[in-house]
Design a protein around this nucleic acid. Structure first.
Lengths: 136, 136
DNA sequence: CGGTATCCAAAATGATACTG
DNA sequence: CAGTATCATTTTGGATACCG
């Protein structure tokens, strides 16, 4: 069968990893998982914590992550409603990955100036938009 | 000075991390970096190693990663042309992150069956699939 | 509050052809 | 071989309406 050498990963390893990448490559998934790695979040908290994401996308990404068994959704029968999201046992295994990423960024992030990049992160001036909105 | 507590990262930490996420959230970036983490690859090698990616996207993602200082592009003045991609010093710091991810997947990946997911990974019959696959 | 549904615009990605 | 140019399709963004 497929051997998983610990160093110098072989081909089958790449095939396996592909599923993991697909599972995490949504546009906001890494950020969502990063937040949940730190603590349980409510829907609204995630929305506030992720500038630029829409309700629509947040909802969609959360449902995908849930379907992939990475997070757990808990609905509290209260008024007003409360829904909490937290990592599943499996996803908690991603902790070391998250920490390693944070460590890397802490070390090199500062050395990578505001650089170009940031594509797909543009968001129009929200404060200015609400001002003049009318016919459509 | 932003405080970076080691456990329970604070808010500023999240803001910092956002840039890292944006840098890696392209649809194929994690996979590309994973491959380059293992060894230098030529353009064509990456294309073969990443089923489903198009020249267009591979080229685009590589240019973005290069712009973000994560990989180095080396063109050899030969015939036929040869172009090699490798991680930069900074990006090599991502090694532990990659390894942690691989370790996680090795541990839990198997427990997450073929699951639904795979959205955005659908690719129309890429010839290779058509051959009635009976072996397993 | 925490969604889902809809419609439309914009951005990202895919397919195919073509070039140095 | 390693791309780019162009056009098509898919995904995501944004606003609004509506519901439990």
């Amino acid at each position: 069968m497929k051997k998983h050498t610990n160093e110098g990963h072989d081909f089958s390893m790449q095939d396996e990893m592909r599923r993991a990448f697909a599972m995490l490559s949504g546009k906001w998934k890494l950020e969502i998982m990063w937040l949940l790695h730190q603590r349980i979040h409510r829907f609204g908290e995630l929305r506030k914590a992720i500038p630029g994401i829409t309700q629509h996308m947040l909802s969609a990404q959360l449902r995908e992550l849930e379907a992939d068994g990475l997070l757990l959704r808990t609905v509290f029968a209260e008024v007003p409603p409360r829904v909490e999201y937290e990592m599943t046992e499996k996803a908690r295994g991603l902790g070391p990955t998250m920490e390693a990423l944070a460590a890397w960024w802490g070390e090199y992030g500062s050395t990578i100036p505001a650089r170009p990049s940031m594509r797909g992160r543009k968001q129009k001036d929200l404060s200015a938009v609400k001002a003049s909105r009318q016919s459509k």
